[in-house]
Design a protein around this nucleic acid. Structure first.
Lengths: 346, 346
DNA sequence: TCCAGGGGTTGAAATGTTTCATCAGCCTTG
DNA sequence: CAAGGCTGATGAAACATTTCAACCCCTGGA
């Protein structure tokens, strides 16, 4: 505790050993196998440590060990709270395994993602979790090929050369639209895009499946594509929706995520529409802000934390278990009905 | 690119040197001072690298260098987008300096914060940025004492033994309440707490200053304390507010942050109040969700990204400039008027 | 008295990179 | 032709930690 004479260099095990009058190996034993060293020397060493303000040098430890005591999660969009909740789940599991978690953010840009991955490989992290910009990008395969434990989050992998964790997005689309049909809506908009995002495609697919199963006319499910899954895109989708001729105008919208839904909600309220009476809205993800909206949003819940915890469990298994087999963990989404779809239409 | 015979161990400079038929030092030169090595050998070495799939081992590099190529930011509340925007600002600056950024989240828990700090010291990060749970906690002073570049974010330091970056919260409180007075409100609630949080105290102080300067009765500025700065606390403050006798009920509320304001807004809308006619609302921080609310929130903007960028600049200066002097950077908050305080009261 | 065994400690080796003084060759210049 | 300078490459040392075989000393048993 009392400060060491700050000679510029942080004290090392060698300094501690000298101060305690023991060998270097003994200090290391105190650190890593305290039981094998006698109580008196252990105490002496510990005193020396705290007197010098000794802190293990993690780089040296890592160098020796060959791998760092950390996992990493590269998330797709830091502005979307969904990914934070996933990260929180991962961190819980990492914490339990006494590992740190590097959180990176690619912001949907492939080159940032690649840069982060490069760094993480250099750091020799124990495992990488990622929600990728493009699940088929070659630099992802490269990671797995290197033998680094690797899990894809929020995206199922067809390739099967790594684990993945996701919810069933098709099912999510189905239950959203089923709910709207239940509520009596007969003309519904799907708001989401770009189609290059797999989740968007699958949620739309689920929506269409149910739509036709219920015998609805195909063009009463109106596709309102967006350029991104953001609040402002949701707003602009609202404008396009308002611009439709009234006999074509849907009475409800299913948005590919909650940010879109919040943007759409805002536009609707600003335009003087009543939600849900004039326009019902369903989101996806069930982020906290969905429940916190002025008109609380009905949303398709993903088990965000559990997604993260499971992903971490899988990556740790791959890292430690020689008999590891890759696994595609699928979760079942659930509809959380709130005021934004409150009433049954007459 | 073609995979190396995966013999379990990642290839090292030594392997590259052997493969290229040069010495170890030359490989290092190719990596760090490419100009000093001849074009032909450089090319040979580079080919060997890509053939073996060589990746620098960052731990070894760090060990040698004595410090890692990373900064760290320990944020207070991962659920509050405000801190993300700050982190983004930091990352921009870190990127420019070719450093990685560790993002940690203390979730307002002192022991998690301490744990993160321990780890970061062990990692020998170049500098630590933090929005602390308690700015006077001894473990913070300990960091600075160790000589690790250290900047406090969103909190000014009185001690002056380290840099800090924040906005003028008193001024922020002033402009919020000035705006409400301008709009004709004569009974205003302050929603925020706990008082242990310095920002809350100062924003309230600013509010009170203006209130008395305008000659208003002290008890027409009604304090509605909360247990945290969250959406759900905002909602419950709304309930308490609605429970006030009508002649005591304020016509406007100034919330200590946007999450509270969103919660309050939600309660108001649910309770059938019109915002801003029945209740005007001002938030603080101006997070993206404030502008995205069904009734867009008036808020006191903090320059979030710039806060981060400046903090990073300061920590880098402390890390590299021997003549560094600690600096308390203060930013001026600005009112962003939106619909939630839209009209002038008659 | 000698030996076996075990608890406790030691010293050296190994991890992968960077740096730096040194050196080999070669070219230029006087 | 000698001296000196330049370019490019080399090899060893250093960084802080962990591991492990070896060793010392003591005790208990034969």
């Amino acid at each position: 505790m009392s400060q060491p004479p700050r000679n510029g260099r942080a004290p090392s095990v060698k300094d501690v050993a000298a101060a305690a009058g023991v060998s270097l190996g003994t200090v290391s034993n105190v650190l890593n196998r305290p039981s094998v060293v006698s109580a008196t020397t252990r105490e002496r060493v510990e005193r020396a440590m705290s007197e010098l303000g000794f802190v293990r040098n993690e780089s040296a430890r890592q160098l020796r060990a060959g791998t760092s005591r950390a996992l990493a999660y590269v998330m797709l969009d830091g502005g979307n709270p969904f990914f934070h909740d996933v990260a929180e789940g991962i961190e819980t599991a990492a914490e339990a395994a006494d590992l740190s978690l590097f959180v990176c953010n690619s912001n949907s840009r492939a080159e940032r993602e690649a840069k982060h991955l490069d760094r993480l490989v250099q750091q020799r992290v124990q495992g990488i979790l990622i929600t990728p910009v493009d699940p088929d990008a070659p630099h992802l395969a490269e990671i797995a090929r290197r033998g680094i434990p690797f899990v894809m989050v929020d995206r199922l992998s067809s390739a099967g050369d790594h684990c993945s964790v996701a919810v069933d997005d098709v099912l999510g689309g189905r239950i959203a639209v089923e709910h709207l049909l239940d509520r009596g809506h007969r003309r519904v908009a799907f708001v989401g895009g770009p189609a290059s995002i797999g989740q968007v495609r699958e949620r739309l697919q689920g929506a269409r499946e149910v739509w036709t199963e219920f015998g609805m006319a195909e063009d009463d499910l109106i596709n309102l594509p967006t350029d991104a899954l953001t609040v402002s895109e949701g707003r602009s989708a609202g404008e396009r929706l308002a611009g439709l001729p009234s006999r074509r105008r849907p009475t409800a919208a299913f948005c590919a995520n909650d940010l879109l839904a919040l943007g759409l909600l805002q536009h609707a309220v600003t335009a003087g529409l009543r939600v849900p009476d004039d326009l019902a809205i369903v989101g996806f993800d069930d982020i906290d802000f969905a429940a916190a909206a002025a008109v609380p949003l009905t949303s398709v819940r993903q088990p965000r934390q559990e997604l993260g915890r499971t992903a971490a469990r899988l990556v740790l298994d791959e890292a430690t278990n020689p008999d590891h087999v890759h696994e595609q963990a699928t979760f079942v989404p659930a509809l959380v009905a709130r005021a934004s779809t409150g009433t049954v239409r007459r």
